[in-house]
Design a protein around this nucleic acid. Structure first.
Lengths: 341, 341
DNA sequence: ATGAAAGCGCTAACAA
DNA sequence: TTGTTAGCGCTTTCAT
């Protein structure tokens, strides 16, 4: 079998090897149309022998069908996104669609570029994190001609469909709980990240609930860089030094929350009593901390699942507003004191 | 502007809108060849006005060039993979190449499927985790005609190139260290995962070092499911109950190691003294535990960087065996006693 | 059940 | 600097 090295095999090669026309080879390889068992066997045998890998580029161009779904997330280093992706994956695995992941580093301009790049491959659907995009991005999403699902947030106007929790309401719920449990000097510890609209919304909801309960935010602090235990410790130490009479610390993120928890326990603070702590996201990997950190399940996996179902055309909307609001679950753990009687 | 909804715009549309030939439009949009500033401006203006998104499918077919690099990993839920990907991303961002991620769930058959699927898009390179693949996968990799880099492991025969640490040697190094620090009753706590060859190799290296030091493995345990603190606690409790005289616990993973650490501290065990602990991977998110867990930096980010450079044709190999062995760094933290004098 | 012809939207190669 | 022609590898459509 003489053939120039590094040339990809084509249908024609399989056709010649099997003595069957290209068209029929194509039919066999896609399980389409009627082909006799004998012909089918010949073709499959030849394709396998040659190690033929079909060229989806040509196939997609000819058929105007692409089985890819573009999934665009800010980062893969924050576990919430891989977890959402797992939900997408799980559902798409039951279809012929394939997710393709792109990242934006929380940068709207990079998001625009990534989106453009991915749309130029003509995917069958787009799943994109969040509702905040540049005008150009929104225009591309609106005009791309395929279903678009904005995930992990419903606070805003989706281009097409949206699935996720309301981070504002989640924050509000935490704030209400804090007030009902008799805390009144609340500190907020977040990450300094312009692009993290969800964290911002959580804080806004929290502030609103507190203010309705007649409580203000006593202190607030934001650090940049990757979230981790160390960051949570540092921020906690700094904030308690600056504002020693705080009785509740809300972290926008479980990882910093866990760092704060470890710090507070070491310092012998009355965690779960006179000092309340809460994080956000409910990372199961943290089950097993010395105390169960109060947190909120942001239901990102389900968001991914529903988004994938929408793309697959396998979801019926309740109303006509094409938003699916998932309900976040507050998990009080044991870092908040009991509700007042 | 009357045009059927949902039809994608083509070069022809831009050509008509701008009064410039398709070919020249193509030149402008790709910054190729000489085009007068005036023509260029007309074209760009028209393309922007229409919201034209080029069709990479047609472009790739015509030019036989695809700027995608297939990156195949077992999972995105284990942070080591996103971290490797970040290295890939960082380097590819400086080129015109784009990573496309696929996952295998540690399943060789799914890996084969994912690989086939991705190769059918004719990527310009393949980065794939590990050296263990089905025969069919190896054949596809060997014949795909583009650079292939197997990452995060160098213990084996790569199809083409390989970049990463030797997990066997990393395990061996830990074993040596354990022996030199005077521990002699070692327990190993891993995850039950057939597809996790790297964890297996670490354990094998460790066992070898211990056996050379005249020490056997006193106990071993593997649990299935996602790694997390809780799993580490459970396993540690169970193992210490079963084999109370252990003086060192090696976890194949920092997360379970951290769980074990928290458990041991709570039980008042002499961590870092008569009880040594070590994890693996050096996750920075864990900086800030009550004690710094001994661990090994598996240098996955660098592996991703080098792999991307190889694909980009931007790496010169030292020798002709196309393996780049990175050296893992043992970080003793403070959960191992001092070396014997 | 199988084959032949046309063409998807772009770019390479060449012409003007 | 710009335009023309052919064709990438497949699928659609229509014919047999």
């Amino acid at each position: 079998m003489v053939r120039p090295p590094n040339r990809h095999l084509t249908l024609r090669d399989v056709s010649e090897e099997s003595g069957v026309s290209e068209m029929t080879v194509s039919r066999v390889l896609r399980n389409r149309g009627d082909v006799s068992d004998k012909t089918r066997a010949k073709v499959i045998e030849a394709a396998k022998r040659l190690g033929y890998v079909p060229n989806k580029i040509a196939g997609a161009l000819a058929s105007n069908r692409v089985n890819l779904v573009a999934v665009i997330v800010p980062s893969l280093s924050n576990l919430v996104f891989p977890e959402m992706l797992a939900g997408v994956d799980e559902v798409l695995a039951t279809t012929s669609l394939q997710p393709v992941v792109g990242t934006t580093s929380y940068d709207p301009a990079k998001e625009e570029k990534t989106l453009f790049e991915m749309l130029s491959w003509r995917p069958s659907g787009v799943i994109i994190a969040g509702l905040e995009h540049t005008d150009a991005s929104r225009a591309m999403l609106a005009n791309c001609g395929v279903p678009v699902v904005e995930v992990m947030d419903v606070d805003g106007d989706p281009v097409d469909a949206a699935v996720g929790i309301s981070h504002w309401r989640a924050g509000y719920q935490v704030g209400t709980e804090i007030a009902e449990r008799g805390y009144s000097r609340v500190g907020i510890l977040g990450t300094k990240m312009d692009g993290d609209h969800r964290a911002r919304k959580r804080i806004e909801g929290l502030e609103r609930a507190l203010s309705e309960a007649g409580i203000g935010v006593a202190d607030q602090m934001a650090y940049s860089g990757l979230s981790g235990f160390a960051k949570g410790r540092e921020m906690t130490a700094a904030m308690l030094e600056r504002t020693p009479d705080l009785d509740f610390l809300f972290y926008t993120n479980d990882l910093t929350g866990a760092g704060g928890l470890l710090y507070a326990l070491e310092k012998g603070l009355d965690v779960g009593g006179n000092l309340g702590l809460a994080g956000f996201n409910a990372f199961t990997l943290l089950d097993g901390l010395p105390r169960k950190l109060a947190t909120v399940d942001s239901r990102r996996r389900e968001a991914g699942q529903v988004a994938a179902r929408i793309i697959a055309g396998d979801h019926v909307f309740d109303s006509d507003d094409r938003r699916v609001e998932l309900v976040p679950t507050l998990l009080p753990g044991d870092t908040m004191r009991d509700r007042l009687a």
